[in-house]
Amino acid sequence: MLRVHNLACARGGLPLLEGVSFALAPGQALVLRGPNGCGKTTLLRCVAGLQPALAGQIAAPPDSIAYAAHADGIKSTLTVAENLEFWAAIYGTAGIAKALERMNLKALSTRAAQNLSAGQKRRLGLARLMVTGRPVWVLDEPTVSLDHASVALFGDVVRAHLAGGGMALMATHIDLGLPEAEILDLAPFKAQMPQPGSGAFDEAFL
């Protein structure tokens, strides 16, 4: 269960979003929508625990969130299998075979990551999620540079993850073929100008 209540977050000292609330139950997916720069990435980084929220609460069971950013964190001189094995070891899970299989990377497993195409790298980055063994996937634009077949493949993987009691929070503009996913438009949550005397972020200096 992931519960976000009245969350406000800022990027570079500038408040972007406020009053964002949602909850994810096992088996649910939530897609964040909104124009570029509205704070999708910032919100996801807050949920992943990388940056502090300005206000509000994020409640999740400990060690439940797996985060995937724009950058895949792939080491180009390591092979596909070595990259995955590293993350499996860090998360203390065993077996990368299933992830390789599901993301259609088996034939590439001994190839150095620098020789992969952008889409193949992305698939490797998403396969990393499967070896984390964590229930809550927090995904930032997961389908960038994926072709149609791979998007469908990824949609299947997410669906299987949800069916197994997992959760997914995604920022994406592409239809993943997940009709059951709820959609949250972030535009209405754009942070308003703080009122004087409200103790806002910059109040001390005005």
Binding site: L50, H70, A71, D72, G73, I90, Y91, G92
Partner: peptide, 16 residues
Amino acid sequence: LDYEDGSLDLLATAPV
């Protein structure tokens, strides 16, 4: 290098 390719973010959210 880890910062540029995003591994550092991922390591910071990993269970270590």
